[in-house]
Design a binder for these strands. Structure first.
Lengths: 263, 263
DNA sequence: GAGTGGTCTAGACCACAGA
DNA sequence: CTGTGGTCTAGACCACTCG
């Protein structure tokens, strides 16, 4: 397990210490000067090693305070779950997430905004609306995990939904509270029920805004998931963009084989 | 678009030059010394900036030769595709991939091995087999994109399938050529037909082996996709692990809503 | 102001590719 | 042997946090 270079080797050593509990979850690491002395290396080299672990999501740095081990383990995100007993109740992403976080001693907090606005270019193209006008209702949610004790909360995802105003204007979809069953139920009421869902996933560095909202650094990566709801007659009625730190989530899909490839 | 630090700013400048074609796809960048002179920075700072772009998959470095712009754009990987005309024929991952690569002027090459072996721990757990014995047939494939001209080939994924020997021994599944329809058809023949597929996706740095096989550096990231085939009576019969550079692939899922959450 | 991490520079040396 | 990138060090200075 020897690395090609000293700073990668140092990263391996510290990573091992995190895994075996020498550096406990949520705990603070020694200062870089001390680590450098212990490891007989220059502080710059140690700093470079720590950057690797920060990029992997194992550490977070509070400048001026110190370096800490991340506390919240990766969360499962279930999509396209059919079938079985133990997973059925996790079908709704919200409900499953709350369950998961509760078991870890966290609660879920969500900040919401609803207003007309402009869609991003790729969303406008999917929906067939004007990217230069306030052509959609924008429902933005920023979700955070709040620990039972202490004050350290963890931002976990940003979800932004776009619904064409030709569909949403004057309906509960344009209101903060969309009513029982949420937006999906309202789309059914309005004759725009979704029949199929599509998700397009890429991994990329966060934008400056995303990095700020999710408390990430540029070396980390986000899942950028474009979630599209299609009607029975194959019209896109809603696009939701999920931005999630890759180190904070596992993605799960389960689906019947008759509709799929079997490589 | 100013960055917090000089090396990130330099990375932004070069990234922009790649996007606008100043540095052409497949072309070579100036030497780090020259870039440093042009940008009035130290070579170490430029080197640091280039590392960011390598991590993003935009550049690749041949030590002793120079730094080059990556040539193969991200490929779409379709899974769980039901429905529509334009996508139906892409259902099989192999067929769709070949089509995609052909349009880009590449052909697909695959190296295959088939033999009994030990499954990784997490695969053994899913299949309920002994991780310490040669309890599975291992079918490993390494796939590369070969350009029509030139000799620069691009490794794009490693796929390793594990089938319990209690099912596979003495059948075509344990042979190099599994016959028409492949392993899935043989599983049907044997009464172990798959009814549902599950994929569990994580993003992580490559292991040393993976980095070597996929010609990646440790700062890059792979999708680690554990693909599970379930029978009608909910037994796992086949697990395939896909390892793919995140910068080389987009993932696509499309599935009916009756089996899914609608967040 | 003291403590902590972030970055830049200059010089040096190493590793690998190719003539 | 030359050209190219990779790394390490030492010293310096900056930025943020907290008392």
């Amino acid at each position: 397990m020897s690395a090609a270079s000293q700073y990668r080797e140092i990263a391996n050593v510290i990573r091992a210490h995190i895994r075996d509990g020498t550096y406990a979850r949520g705990g603070q690491l020694p200062r870089e000067d001390d680590l450098a002395a212990q490891l007989k290396a220059n502080r710059v080299t140690v700093n470079r090693a720590l950057k690797i672990l920060v990029a992997e999501g194992l550490l977070r740095v509070h400048r001026g305070k110190g370096t800490f081990v991340s506390e919240l383990p990766p969360l499962p995100r279930y999509a396209a779950i059919r079938h079985s007993q133990e997973h059925r109740e996790r079908g709704g992403s919200g409900g499953a997430l709350v369950t998961e976080l509760t078991e870890l001693g966290y609660t879920l907090r969500s900040d919401n905004t609803v207003s007309p606005g402009r869609p991003p270019a790729h969303v406008a193209e999917i929906l067939g609306v004007d990217p230069e006008a306030d052509s959609v209702i924008v429902r933005a949610r920023r979700m955070r995990a709040i620990p039972a004790e202490g004050t350290r909360e963890v931002p976990i995802q940003i979800a932004t939904s776009y619904i064409p105003r030709t569909i949403a204007d004057g309906t509960p979809i344009a209101e903060m509270n969309s009513g029982v069953g949420g937006i999906s139920s309202r789309l059914v009421d309005l004759g725009h029920g979704q029949q199929e869902l599509e998700e397009r996933i890429t991994v990329r560095p966060p934008t400056d805004d995303e990095a700020s909202l999710l408390e990430m650094v540029e070396d980390q990566r986000v899942y950028d998931i474009t979630h599209i709801g299609w009607t029975a007659d194959d019209r896109p009625v809603k696009v939701t963009v999920y931005i999630m730190p890759t180190h904070q989530w596992d993605l799960r899909y389960r689906y019947p084989i008759d509709s799929a490839s079997a490589p």
